[in-house]
């Protein structure tokens, strides 16, 4: 579904990703781990199409089932969203003045229009969202409040996963969705993601901590270091990182690079 070759990305002229290769297929769950500053969030943002992250080299091909490849780099952020790409933000933005449900409906309908699916009116959509809210135990009174305004850290992250549930993307990046969550909220959010993953979509989690992977089981764990994926393995790799830290694996990989 996603095929990234030799991706180089700069922010404000500073190279962050330096030759990243990555592949993901339908039905897979990937975890991207790595020390601070290795480029994890940059990876998530560049795939979602943040305009300040400049791709200087490499290719990102995105394939929808039974359709030809799309060159993702040629699409603006909204066009990628319409093609089924989703990013759960590490720091969701507050938008005072716009109600959560209006925002969700605007977003949902613009994606429906693009995909040729019929849009929903206000009451249909409210029922639809109320149903989806159960997935992350999202208090429906928050639907009529301004987007993320005055939400706790946990509520903001639940709201991100609610958006994921409403938009049902094919490729989801979760950028440190576990950060700032207490153990109960982490369980609810992870349980929500588990309910949303299926054979047709792929989930890529960017995280610092092994504990998220106790709740959402990855098929693959990748270590990102200095803008490249230096090691890929199964869930056991995350366990090793938890016990040994990054040093050992980074030392191994640096030998390989040299």
């Amino acid at each position: 579904m996603l095929d990234i070759q030799n991706l180089h990305v700069s922010v404000d002229g500073i190279p962050i990703l330096k030759g990243l290769d990555f592949q993901a297929k339908e039905g897979e769950v990937h975890a991207i781990m790595g020390p601070n500053g290795s480029g994890k969030s940059t990876f998530a943002k560049v795939i979602a199409g943040h305009p300040e992250y400049k791709v200087t080299a490499g290719t990102v091909d995105y394939k929808k089932s039974n359709m030809k490849n799309i060159d993702m780099l040629g699409l603006a952020a909204d066009e990628r969203a319409k093609e089924g790409v989703f990013l759960a933000f590490q720091y969701p933005i507050e938008i005072p003045g716009v109600s959560n449900i209006d925002f969700l409906r605007t977003s949902f309908n613009s994606i429906c229009r693009h995909q040729g699916v019929s849009e929903m009116n206000e009451s249909e959509f409210r029922n639809f969202v109320s149903e989806k809210s159960k997935i992350v135990k999202f208090d429906s009174s928050f639907l009529d409040r301004a987007v993320n305004e005055g939400f706790s850290g946990g509520e903001k992250k639940k709201n991100e996963i609610l958006q994921m549930a409403v938009l049902s993307p094919r490729l989801s990046f979760l950028d440190e969705t576990d950060s700032g969550l207490d153990i109960d909220a982490l369980r609810i959010v992870a349980d929500g993601v588990n309910q949303l993953k299926n054979k047709q979509n792929a989930v890529i989690m960017v995280t610092h901590y092994q504990r998220l992977l106790d709740y959402i089981k990855p098929d693959y764990v990748h270590v990102l270091y200095k803008g490249r994926i230096v090691k890929t393995g199964g869930p056991e790799l995350a366990k090793r990182l938890e016990e040994e830290g990054y040093d050992g694996i980074i030392a191994e990989s640096e030998k390989v690079i040299q």
Partner: peptide, 25 residues
């Protein structure tokens, strides 16, 4: 703007929504 675009709103729609939101508060 990026947050709204990542949810499928075009740059123009996102900008208008933010202008409206600012006023609507």
């Amino acid at each position: 703007v990026f947050y709204l675009m990542s949810r499928g709103l075009s740059e123009e729609e996102a900008s208008k929504l933010l202008a409206f939101a600012f006023i609507n508060e």
